[in-house]
Design a protein around this nucleic acid. Sequence first.
RNA 1: GGAGAGAUGGGUGAGUGGCUGAAACCAACAGUUUGCUAAACUGUCGUACCUCUAACGGGUACCGGGGGUUCGAAUCCCCCUCUCUCCGCCA
Length: 424
Amino acid sequence: MLELAKIRSDKEEVILRLKVKNFHNAEEIVDKIIVLDEQKRKLQKELEEQKAQMNLKSKEIGQFMAQNLKDKAEESKQDVAQIKEKTKELESLLKDKEEELQKTLLIVPNLPHVSVTKGKSAEDNEVVFQSSELPKLTSNSLAHWDLCQKYDIIDFELGNKITGSGFPVYKGKGAKLQRALINFFLDNAYASGFNEMQVPIMVNEQSAIATGQLPDKDSQMYFAPLDNFYLIPTAEVPLTNIYRDEIVKQDSLPLKLCGYTPCFRREAGSYGKDVRGLNRLHQFDKVEIVCIDTPEHSYAQLEFMKEHVASLLQKLELPYRILRLCGGDMSFTSALTFDFETFSAGQNRWLEVSSVSNFETFQSNRLKLRFKNSDGKTQLAHTLNGSALALPRIVATLLENNQTENGIKIPKVLVPYTGFEIIN
RNA sequence: GGAGAGAUGGGUGAGUGGCUGAAACCAACAGUUUGCUAAACUGUCGUACCUCUAACGGGUACCGGGGGUUCGAAUCCCCCUCUCUCCGCCA
C-alpha cells in the first residue's frame, strides 16, 4: 500500500509512475484519494474537538459529584447529551470516509522504481544479462515430460489420480533429485547469510493481506473455508509476516531469512503448452529468500540477492538470462523486479525460475513493519524477496539440457546431495 | 470433540467505574561514579493519527477484536477470535 504522505506531497510524480505500470485512471484515483483524505481529516478534526469537550465535561461531572453538587452535575450531563448526538453523526461519516479511502488505497499498485520503463508486456522486458552459450541438442532429444516417462522419475498421471492435474508424483531418483536441490539451495542460502526458517504453509487472512496477495490475487490461492486459511502461493507470505507489527532496531538490519516450502497456486486461466509437464504446477517446491532492510541499503541488498541467485544457476551449470521487468509486466506489489530464466533446450524456450524484487515500503506499510532509525524515529522498512530457487523448471531444464544417450547427467555440485551421477 | 481458565505496554505483572496511557519490577537507552568489568545512583523509556509553534507543545484513539450500558469503561454486559490447562482422540 502506498504511503498517503507520499501521495499527498508528490501527487504528480505518483501519477506519472503509476502510468509506467499501466495503471488505468491514475489521475482519477489519485485525485479521489486526495479528496477523500482531505474530507476525512476535516471530519476527524471536528470529531476530536467534540470529544475533547465531552471528556472535559465528564471530568467536571465527576468533580461535581464528589463535591455533592448534584444540580451542577445534572446541568453538565445535559450539555454532554447534546454534544454526543453530534459526535455520533460525525463518527459514522468519518467511518464511511475511512473505509472508502482504505478501499481505494488497497487497489493502487506500488510505484515502479525510476529505472523502470513503461512497456506493455513481457516482450518489453530488458535483457540485462545472458549466458554466452546455449546448449544444442541432437535432433532426437526429448522434452522433459518425455524424459520423465522414459526414466520413470516423475509421474503426472499418478498425480492426476491422487489429486488432479498439476500435482505430479516424484519417484525414485526424481524424488531424490528434489530433495537434493532443496538441500543444495538451503545450504547455499545459509552460506550467503540467510537464516533458515521452517514456517506454516497455511496462513490467515491478515497475513495474506499484509504481503499483498489479498485482495489482489484472491482467486489464485487455495482456501480452506472451515478455518479461513489460505495455502501459501510462496514462502514470502509466512516469512515476511514473521515481522508483521514489529518495530526492529536499525542495527539488526538487514534481516535475511530463507525457507523451503511447497507452494500452491490455482493458476486459474492457464492452459496450453505453457502448462505441460513441469512448466506450470498447482503444487511445487521452492526455496525463498527474504530481506528486510533500510531504504538506504535496500537496492544494494537487491543486487546481493541477484548475485546469490546467479551463483546458484552458475553452479548448476545452467544457461540463464536476467531480465529487468518493464512496468507492464511487473507485479502489483513490486517497485523493481529482475526475473531469472533458464534456457530449456528440449523445448527451445526460456523458463522463469526466479523473480527477485524490492517492494520498498509497499508491503511494510501493510505489515506495519518499521525500524527505529538513528534519530530514534520509527520509519517503514523496505522488504525484498526472491526465489532461490523454484524447483520444477530447474528440474525441467536440468533434465533436458543434460540428456545424453546413456542417461541424464547430474551437475557436479549436486552429486554429493543426490548420491548418484546419472539418471538412467 | 468435552470441560475450565485467560488475553493489559519489549517482558513479568498490578489494576473492578472518574485521581489510569495505565503501578511495580525486569529489559533497553542516556548519564554519574569507576583502573577495567560488575554493582550502585539519576534520568529517559508505547503506538498511530490530527493540530499548532522556529521550538517546547496541545488534542483524539488504542489494555485481543467488534458492539452495548453510562455524563464517564482496561474495569460492567453481549458476541467473536485466539491462547493455555485437563479429559478424549491421534501423527
